[in-house]
Design a protein around this nucleic acid. Sequence first.
DNA 1: AGAACCAATGCAATCGTTTGCACGAAAATA
DNA 2: TATTTTCGTGCAAACGATTGCATTGGTTCT
Lengths: 343, 343
Amino acid sequence: MQVTIKDVAREANVAPSTVSRVIANSSRISQKTKERVRQAMDELGYYPNVHARSLANRTTQAIGLVMPSAATKTLQNPFFSEVIRGISTKAHQNGYSLYMTTGVSEEEVYEGVVSMVQGRRVDGVVVLYSRTDDKVVQFLQDSKFPFVVVGKPFSDSSHVTYVDTDNYLAGREVTKYLHQLGHECIAFVGGAQDLAVTQERVGGYKTALMEEGIPIQESYIVSAPFMTTGGAEAVKRLLSLEHPPTAVVVSDDMMALGVMSTLNEMGISVPDQMAVVSFNNLFIAEFSSPPLTSVEINIFGLGFEATNCLIEQINEDATPYGKRVIVPHYLVVRQSCGGKSEA
Amino acid sequence: MQVTIKDVAREANVAPSTVSRVIANSSRISQKTKERVRQAMDELGYYPNVHARSLANRTTQAIGLVMPSAATKTLQNPFFSEVIRGISTKAHQNGYSLYMTTGVSEEEVYEGVVSMVQGRRVDGVVVLYSRTDDKVVQFLQDSKFPFVVVGKPFSDSSHVTYVDTDNYLAGREVTKYLHQLGHECIAFVGGAQDLAVTQERVGGYKTALMEEGIPIQESYIVSAPFMTTGGAEAVKRLLSLEHPPTAVVVSDDMMALGVMSTLNEMGISVPDQMAVVSFNNLFIAEFSSPPLTSVEINIFGLGFEATNCLIEQINEDATPYGKRVIVPHYLVVRQSCGGKSEA
DNA sequence: AGAACCAATGCAATCGTTTGCACGAAAATA
DNA sequence: TATTTTCGTGCAAACGATTGCATTGGTTCT
């Protein structure tokens, strides 16, 4: 059987309540007793039962993770490993551990979150995506449960705490960068359209074009699911146009890999015949050939900051919802655009 | 406040115990009562408190994940996302959720596991690595706690349930494959030497050489930490030899990327001047250039099977420790070895 | 010396479930 | 009709902690 607080109490000749206070390091217990109790704890190999504790003080020291509904697929994108790395680092620093449910359908994910929250399994939740009209975010907001989202939530974003990259700005910058290199025909390949990232990045792209006096061609804007395979189709569509572009902004490194691989198969060389720039600067960006010019968005930092905000929110009872943190980004120039050096 | 079982009981005009039995769908409760209670549950929006439940029936419906100690680094390897994907799929199917602690040092990880187990936070544990002399495995075994390891545990592997690839065989096969293609000078670049995978794969490599009558040169065997950067050094060392190899077996796709990237920088073309074959067949293998010939080891399946074994172990009280599952592998031929087609 | 106080600890209720056992009513048996 | 079974519920004791409110003995006032 398990060693309980009572066993320790008996061994140390005190009451259970005293042991509990020693664990909490209460100032009301004398130094001498504390030592005696602590010794009894080691001797017996005592470890507190987390459930009993959670039940009594209504706190869990755990943070819930909500992955996109097709969790089983998206998890393949190193983006997620990286955010989780950030989250888990911060969480660990503050004595929290992580808890995740997954679900195949959107409905399953929703159910998972509800039972996580209502069942009091976690103290707060990090949402790892942001989509239009999301039930999960809506639910969390209604239940006044501490949560933060990574990415920009759509509806009512002013009341939701979130951590994000300035994707609009980044989109604008890379587009201008390509223009500076002399490109006039610039295309955009994005991921799923209901994702906030995609919309923001394409928005920046359009703005940049306008600012540079280049007309926007809808046929230059294609979207596909977020993974590598999507890239292939997109490329084919663009190249079959009357005036194919000479440069392309791709919304994600993974997809850029797919794009480049397809270009390679079709005998089109990067960057000579087609410049490619993308976002996220995953480690693979460095090792692709040619190495990808990509926007470093500090994914680790997104997770880390998000968790930071969440913990703040958990601790302060005075719920100051609506905080937003923008993590800075910068362009890492490699060889996929031809442009050498420069920051 | 939370809606409790008592509220439901009152609403449905029954005793709390009856409500509990309805939740468990006990056959001792009449159909009529069940319906009445269920209705009361929806009406009030009842969700069971997981901690109270865990406390009472000493079960958590959660599985613990143990990552390698430098979790913050290793998590970058897509291998882990992929195993976790497998684990989480199976877990979800059986109503389990995942729980993870991380730690920077080996000691922290150990502490995490101990408090996870002793604190009764999980029903079982899957260990995502296997190293010589590992405290964690030792502890789990001593406490007779359900666990399974992904990879081959060293000590006493006959009493430990594990799921693994036949890395020895795979190492032998790829080496022979290179030999068939005409290579005589074949090197091996491996990861950390205290990892079981590395040892097994290099073992297979050596066996193959012996079987083909090729002498083993220790200078052809280099090892480096498991990530891309390690690859660079390894390559430099090999190329500085008097008789540099013409082919190399690399222990991991990530590292192979590093190797190829370095070769590229040094102006050595793959596969013409150097053939490269590696393991794991991560999605990036397909999109590198040239695309990597790699051993598909079904990482998802490893995680899935491991969880399957774990759940079995949790359910059966008669602990049948020592089960082993070998997940089959096969070579995926792409272009990094020059050899076209063939299975 | 008696009142008032303080520091250190113990008592017992509480958190929300589960579950062995007891109980009464209805059904089956004798 | 009296007696045993069966069925459907309720009672109350766990599970292992936390915490508000006594209680105790010893100081420090006046």
